[in-house]
Design a protein around this nucleic acid. Structure first.
Lengths: 157, 157
DNA sequence: TATCTGGGTTCGCATGTCAAACCCAGAGTC
DNA sequence: GACTCTGGGTTTGACATGCGAACCCAGATA
């Protein structure tokens, strides 16, 4: 990514205002200690209140509030289900919008695996057809990966 | 991404424990209201305490603490600089590790741009050689993008 | 000597987080 | 038809963290 070390004038302001930057908006929505972890669980398929609670060790009140927010912002959907003759209950599953977050989560995971961990993660992300391991990268519209050195980031005027 | 809608037994536990999941570790490090936004500013090249403060509207004490943590975890580096004859000061710039977070940030940005915003972001991420717009995707080792439907996610035993 | 500026630290109050206790609907049980 | 169990919550009150405003400090400038 273009990051001139040269001693030009320092950047004083982000080129994109916060309220028009998708990343900043995403951070506002996902940026707290639990929300990302809840989405991660949902991504793994954990969908029930008590399972989430047990798996994450999150307080009930916080989990309740975060789930409400995630449903409200369309990342999770609340689905009714019944198990045998039990009464109807609800679980929380990724919506289309939530599933689309997968790439960002994987990118974060691969970064964490590279930099924050000694042992490699036990999670394998592969091409279903060939079994080849997959990595997050920037690609051109015809699907070719581009080296970091060839990536240009610039704000439109 | 493989997300079976079928009525199989629900997943009760994440397949990867939190202390061995790069994503969870990354969330522990970056998961609060400000840290990601600070990294975003650094990514844009904003590097000085007061510029960060003005741009983000973050309280001084919090900014100071977050910068310390980010330097401590090796995402930012504190560099001395001097401007003209002024005394030596310090600014905060992405380290190699921090620069490597770029992909995850871009993934998050593109998700936010797609789902959280009406107007497209003014930020253009392009191939320096051809000018083609770039997108985050999963690629095989030889650099070919793989469609989401062909991606398989599974934990090793 | 006084002042300005970048880069902080220190305050006291407001807000958020937490664990534990409580609630509640319906199914099974006696 | 009272009792209890279970999933999925809400309430409560102590504690931690966040916040803005005020203060500090070093060196350059006036």
């Amino acid at each position: 990514m273009s990051n001139p070390e040269s001693a030009t004038a320092p950047v004083r302001r982000a080129p994109v205002p916060r309220d028009r930057c998708g990343m900043a908006l995403a951070c506002d929505m996902l940026g707290d200690r639990w929300t990302m972890l809840i989405v991660r669980e949902a991504f793994y398929g954990v969908s029930r209140f008590d399972d989430l609670r047990a798996d994450l060790g999150i307080p009930r009140g916080i989990l309740s509030a975060r789930l409400k927010a995630l449903v409200g912002s369309g990342v999770l959907e609340r689905h009714p289900y019944r198990e045998g003759s039990a009464r109807v209950r609800h679980d929380y599953r990724l919506s289309e919008r939530g599933r689309d977050l997968g790439l960002a989560l994987i990118a974060l995971m691969q970064w964490g695996d590279r930099h924050l961990q000694e042992a490699p993660s036990p999670l394998r992300i592969t091409d279903r057809r060939t079994g080849a391991p997959l990595q997050v990268a920037l690609v051109t519209p015809d699907g070719r990966a581009v080296a970091a050195a060839d990536v240009d980031v610039a704000a439109e005027v």
